[in-house]
């Protein structure tokens, strides 16, 4: 079955979404991630969406859910690399992803993730 790969880097999990996801794929990723956080006791999750040229309400909701889920499981989530056109569209759509931490790129995201884990 088709899956989005989840990489482990120390206590962090790294997800780079590079395909045009259909809904089931997004739901599978959500399940896989929560299972991995639980199994590895990961402290942080970095989701890189710089390759996505569209985020609709379904994917937006998935990101929000992952962020909420991981917080309950004592992990921080940082979303990185959202393209300008995607950001403008999401805001117009009415999704502002409150409570989801963001960073411009993977490097900044890792830095932010470390800070947040230290403070949590």
């Amino acid at each position: 079955m088709e899956r989005i790969p989840i990489l482990q880097m120390g206590e962090f999990l790294l997800v780079t979404i590079q395909v045009d996801m259909h809904d089931q794929l997004a739901l599978t990723l959500q399940d896989d991630l929560s299972e991995r956080i639980n199994r590895t006791s990961a402290r942080g999750v970095l989701i890189d969406i710089s390759a996505l040229d569209m985020v609709d309400s379904f994917i937006g909701r998935m990101i929000g859910t992952i962020s909420g889920l991981s917080r309950i499981m004592d992990a921080q989530t940082v979303l990185v690399g959202m393209q300008p056109a995607v950001a403008i569209t999401l805001v117009e759509l009415g999704m502002t992803l409150p409570g989801v931490a963001t960073a411009l790129n993977v490097e900044r995201g890792m830095k932010l993730l470390r800070e947040r884990v230290e403070n949590s």
Binding site: D53, M54, V55, D56, F58, A85, I88, T89, E92, L93
Partner: peptide, 13 residues
């Protein structure tokens, strides 16, 4: 690009 992204997102919904 921005108009295109909006349209494609509407299509998805």
């Amino acid at each position: 690009l921005i108009d295109l992204t909006k349209l494609v997102t509407a299509v998805s919904e």
